[in-house]
Amino acid sequence: MTYRYRFISEHRAEFGVQRLCQVLGLRRQGFHEWVAAETARPRRAEAETELVALITGIHAEHRGAYGVPRITAELHRRGLAVNHKRVERLMREHGLAGITRRKRRSTTRPTAGPVTPVADLIRRDFTAPAPGLRMVGDITCLPTFEGWLYLATVIDLHTREIVGHAMAEHMRTDLVCDAIDLAAARGFIDDDAVFHSDRGVQYTSGQFRAALAEQKIRASVGRAGSCYDNAVAEAFFATLKPRSVPRSGGPAATPARRVRRPALLRPHETALHPRPEHPSRNPNQPLQSGPRRLKPRFRLTEATSDQISFARGQAPHGSYLM
């Protein structure tokens, strides 16, 4: 359309605007509107250049993992009213794209022996009236030069914040117990809260049930082989893994289990993301200001920027707790 208007502008003295518009199938009024907007085009082009720079910065800040929906949400969070179609066009023109995950393979392994029946108290209703009442969690593995690093999480369904997490070189039951203990020690879990998980052997074990009972937490499990019953935890890992494993040509992968954590789990990575952010979290919802209470039976040592040592004298079970 713009090229035809330019053609008319260049040849209107010779052939006339009306005749050229008839030949090219354009409205004469549309051409005059295009001419009237001539002075505004340089300003619009300059604003678009600034927007491209901002989009490129956000894309690089998140290691190339953010696509059109999340970059648009991030721009809205920063106070810019931008349509997602405009963001998609600019990203396409400048060769920017998010990371697409590979096809997921099932890794949940139900326990071999008899298990005490546990009801599904969530039933895919991933909402909560207040923080600390309904939690979900799961385990995933992250690649490092030293081998696999296993991560267990506890997610609050009200705020979508990661209120407890633990990392270790194994995926034994100790790992998920450490994540629950940390969430409880931080004061983010109320008594009689519900913790929902899949039917993996760690979450259906007697040790984990005892850890929940010790914290006065009720257990809830979904059906075997159904990722939708624990969709919130699965969605968080779908966000975490592209950001923790850089693209080819980028910086090296996480060099060691203890040296570096994925950028998404840094407690104060940026001013806009002071805590790990879930993809379904409402960007206008305020983050929790801090723990509501702290159970006296646990002790948290002074934290550094890379690791929070959770201890009852020392970090339990050799886990890397943050």
Rank of each mutant, 00 (worst) to 15 (best):
T144F: 07
M167A: 12
E74K: 06
V136C: 12
C21I: 07
E93T: 11
A235N: 08
I139E: 09
F236V: 01
V259F: 12
L20Q: 03
A130K: 10
R123K: 14
L264D: 14
H62N: 13
D198F: 02
F298C: 06
G249I: 06
L300K: 03
A193Q: 07
R6D: 11
L287Y: 14
G67V: 01
L75A: 09
A179V: 08
D138Q: 04
H84T: 04
E93G: 06
A179Q: 05
D125H: 11
D181E: 13
N284F: 11
G200V: 07
F195I: 10
A193W: 10
V35P: 04
R275F: 12
T72C: 09
R292W: 11
R281I: 09
L300V: 02
D229P: 09
N282G: 10
E14L: 05
L265Q: 07
A219I: 07
P274I: 05
Q307F: 12
M91H: 11
D306Y: 05
E33Y: 12
R199H: 07
H268S: 14
A253H: 13
H196N: 02
E302K: 14
P276E: 07
R104S: 08
R4S: 10
L24Q: 06
C177F: 04
I55F: 02
T159Q: 04
H94I: 00
A315P: 14
H278D: 09
V154E: 05
A152F: 01
K85W: 04
D156I: 02
H170L: 03
H84Y: 11
G79Q: 02
T144N: 03
R293S: 14
D198G: 07
Q307V: 13
G147V: 01
M167D: 04
M322P: 12
K85D: 03
A211S: 13
R19N: 05
F145C: 14
P316H: 04
H273M: 14
A97R: 12
H11I: 06
R6T: 04
Q285Y: 03
L96N: 02
V163Y: 01
V221Y: 10
T153S: 11
S289M: 13
V23N: 03
D192Q: 14
T127Y: 00
G164K: 03
R292Y: 10
V52P: 03
V245R: 05
T153Y: 01
A231D: 00
P279A: 04
V87C: 00
H170P: 04
E48V: 05
R134N: 11
N83L: 00
E169V: 12
H170G: 00
P274C: 02
L133W: 05
D125C: 00
V176Y: 05
H317F: 13
D156Q: 03
S289Y: 06
A238P: 05
P129Q: 00
R260L: 10
A256P: 05
D181T: 04
I99N: 04
L54Y: 03
K103H: 12
R209A: 15
H59C: 06
G95F: 02
V115C: 10
V82Y: 07
V68A: 01
L96E: 03
S244L: 02
T301E: 15
I308P: 13
M171R: 15
E234A: 02
S205G: 01
G57L: 08
L149Y: 03
R104V: 09
G187K: 06
R105E: 13
A185D: 00
H62A: 13
R312I: 11
R70T: 06
V221L: 12
V115Q: 06
A263E: 15
R247I: 01
Q22P: 06
P143R: 02
K241S: 09
R92F: 01
R218G: 11
Q314W: 12
